[in-house]
């Protein structure tokens, strides 16, 4: 599914047979899922009500259930529904006016500050003209842009806190640009950028780059002998978050 739709969709696998995290990771490593675009978890976000596996649910871009059932017997239905959902995810809600749609499009492109500024202008003008519908829609878009920007900032913070400093840095640069002009969002981006410039940040950046190289080899050839290299990395980068991550990877390489 991911191969067909690329990053137009998100794929989340939920392990429901009680495997522990290490077993699940080992399984995924051997299947060469690591480094790809799919995610997996042991936490069940909901139940489809099906009694067998594999079963699935498709959520639209707003998080609403569009289809559910058994994966193996509904392949073409899943594909058709996903194509439709991808198309719809690129369209603003039909009741939005052209000016609200413009703000929505900026938000969906990741231009959060632009979207917020446009939505605020629409709200102001619509309020002057007593256009309650536009005020409401623009408010929706403004909140959506704020939520998305907050979510991206939280994601970068998570990456920095979990030994993915290089990846966090790569996401932070365009995010900072996208948030420029909105004081709170810019302040959060600046705080993260400052940390990356600190001595701890520099140390983590260097370590995470080294680990990325080792991960590349491991994910490409999961059956190769990588454990020694990972343990040497842990020793060399002791105390870093990247070393903790390498240590966890070394365990599943056993």
């Amino acid at each position: 599914m991911q191969e067909e739709f690329g990053d137009e969709i998100a794929v989340l696998f939920v392990e429901v047979q009680g495997a522990d995290r290490a077993k699940m990771q080992k399984f995924a490593l051997e299947k060469k899922w690591f480094g790809g675009d799919s995610m997996w978890t042991r936490e069940r976000p909901f139940s489809t009500g099906m009694n067998g596996i594999p079963n699935f649910a498709l959520l639209d871009a707003q998080g609403k259930v569009a289809l559910s059932g058994y994966s193996n017997s509904m392949h073409s239905q899943i594909k058709d529904t996903l194509s439709e959902l991808v198309k719809n995810s690129e369209k603003a809600p039909s009741h939005y006016s052209s000016s609200v749609t413009k703000a929505w499009k900026e938000s969906s492109r990741g231009n959060y500050a632009k979207a917020i500024t446009l939505a605020e202008k629409v709200m102001q003008k619509a309020a002057e003209k007593d256009n309650a519908d536009d005020v409401e829609s623009a408010k929706e878009v403004l909140n959506l842009a704020l939520e998305k920007a907050d979510s991206k900032i939280s994601q970068v913070r998570w990456l920095l806190d979990h030994g993915y400093a290089e990846k966090g840095k790569q996401l932070l640069a365009p995010l900072t640009k996208a948030c420029k002009g909105v004081a709170d969002l810019s302040a959060s981006c600046l705080e993260l950028a400052d940390w990356l410039k600190s001595s701890s940040g520099k140390e983590e950046l260097s370590a995470s780059r080294g680990l990325q190289r080792l991960e590349g080899k491991l994910f490409e050839d999961p059956k190769g002998s990588h454990r020694k290299g990972l343990l040497a990395f842990v020793e060399k980068n002791v105390g870093t978050l990247a070393a903790s991550r390498a240590s966890a990877l070394a365990k599943i390489c056993q």
Binding site: V16, Q17, A28, P45, F56, L58, G63, A66, S89, S151
Partner: peptide
């Protein structure tokens, strides 16, 4: 999520995935 899904690079909730369709599959090892 209590723990970010593996390989998600910091996704913390289903809400974080909004903006594009999500295929959620329940499977076993």
């Amino acid at each position: 999520f209590q723990n970010s899904p593996v390989n998600s690079y910091g996704v913390q909730s289903l809400d974080d995935l909004r903006g594009r369709p999500v295929f959620v599959e329940f499977w076993g090892t």
